[in-house]
Simulated scan of single mutants.
Amino acid sequence: MTEKPENSQYRGIIPPMITPLKNEDELDLQGLHKLIDHVIDGGVHGLFILGTTGESTSLSYALRHGLIKETCKHVNGRVPVLVGVTDTATAESIRLAETARDAGASALVAAPPYYFSLGQPELIEYYNYLADRLPLPLFLYNMPSHTKINIEPDTVKELSKHDNIIGLKDSSGNTAYFNKVLFHMKETPEFSLFVGPEEIMAETVLLGGAGGVNGGANMFPKLYVDLYNAAINGDIEQVKKLHALVMEISAGIYSLGRFGSSYLKGLKGALNLLGICNDYMASPLHKFEKEEKDQLESNLREIQKKIH
């Protein structure tokens, strides 16, 4: 196996950016630019577009390609841009990857194709086939709640041998799983292991994880960067203090109403209340109605008092 270059290692806070929309088939460009500037000014270490938080599977291909071009153009090399290319059709993933390369993105992210229930040998075959054809380095994306498939630790280790596969984003929320992956990959420190759920980001960084792909960093990027830095520095008292704020965000922003999409409704609604972008959501999802929006505004105001 050829050793991966040192610059293939990513670390820190890489927000999974929401996709600001005006309607079902039009980007909110002003909101997109404001959001990009907001998170970069907050000190994040990169951006990840077209993930779950970006509603990628609900967007037309034209919108996805447009978002890649517009994001990379506005970022203009300030931070690395990671682009989600998850799709049930490998040809579409490759087309997105080619647009990402041409636009100046740094890396790609792909969850397993989510229609057929692939076994682990098939998953290895799929990712090797995909990685062979991609023009940029690839992060595996473990999202079993949405894809029905868990990328097992042994599978991660096997796939890490591919020169073009450089890391994993785990959004399972399963710390036992993440610790097993850390153990399996302890001899491969250049392979970057990120966690999605912000509620467990600090503890995974303390245990050796590379950082967090945390939705809340869309709203309060500096908070998540500060929490990451406290964990890296082993400042447990600061970790406890900042982690408590992250948990308040989880409870007050992501858990309103009885919706399967409360996290995303709350996040987009909060960004709208912060004056950053539109809160339109692509079908089949829809933004909060007045009752939840009023509660969200109240909760957000209380959280802001504690953060600032």
Rank of each mutant, 00 (worst) to 15 (best):
Glu3Arg: 13
Pro5Asp: 04
Gly12Lys: 04
Pro16Met: 02
Thr19Asn: 05
Thr19His: 04
Pro20Leu: 02
Asn23Phe: 00
Glu24Val: 07
Leu27Asp: 06
Asp28His: 05
Gly31Ser: 06
Lys34Gln: 14
Lys34Met: 08
Leu35Gln: 10
Ile36Lys: 01
Ile36Leu: 01
Val44Asn: 02
His45Gln: 15
Gly46Cys: 07
Gly54Asp: 07
Gly54Glu: 07
Leu63Lys: 04
Arg64Glu: 09
His65Asp: 12
Thr71Glu: 03
Lys73Ala: 14
Val75Ile: 13
Val79Arg: 01
Val79Ile: 12
Pro80Glu: 03
Gly84Tyr: 02
Thr86His: 09
Leu96Met: 15
Leu108Ile: 07
Leu108Asn: 06
Leu108Gln: 02
Ala111Thr: 09
Tyr114Gly: 06
Ser117Val: 13
Gln120Pro: 08
Tyr127Arg: 07
Asn142Cys: 05
Met143Ser: 05
His146Asp: 08
His146Lys: 13
Thr147Asp: 03
Glu152His: 12
Pro153Asn: 04
Asp154Thr: 01
Lys157Pro: 01
Ile166Arg: 06
Gly167Lys: 05
Gly173Ser: 10
Gly173Phe: 02
Thr175Ser: 15
Thr188Asn: 15
Glu198Lys: 02
Ile200Met: 13
Val205Asn: 09
Val213Asp: 01
Gly215Tyr: 09
Ala217Ser: 15
Met219Cys: 15
Phe220Thr: 00
Leu223Val: 00
Val225Gln: 00
Ile232Met: 14
Asn233Tyr: 03
Asn233Met: 09
Asp235Asn: 13
Asp235Ala: 10
Ile236Ala: 09
Glu237Cys: 07
Gln238Trp: 00
Lys241Ala: 09
Met247Gly: 05
Ser250Ile: 00
Ser250Thr: 00
Gly252Val: 05
Gly252Ile: 00
Tyr254Gln: 11
Arg258Val: 12
Tyr263Met: 13
Lys265Thr: 03
Lys268Tyr: 09
Gly269Ala: 01
Ala270Glu: 03
Leu271Arg: 01
Leu273Trp: 01
Ala282Trp: 02
Lys287Trp: 06
Glu289Met: 12
Glu289Ser: 12
Lys290Val: 08
Glu292Ala: 12
Gln295Val: 04
Ser298Arg: 14
Asn299Thr: 10
Glu302Ile: 01
Gln304Trp: 01
Lys305Val: 15
Lys306Thr: 06
Lys306Val: 11
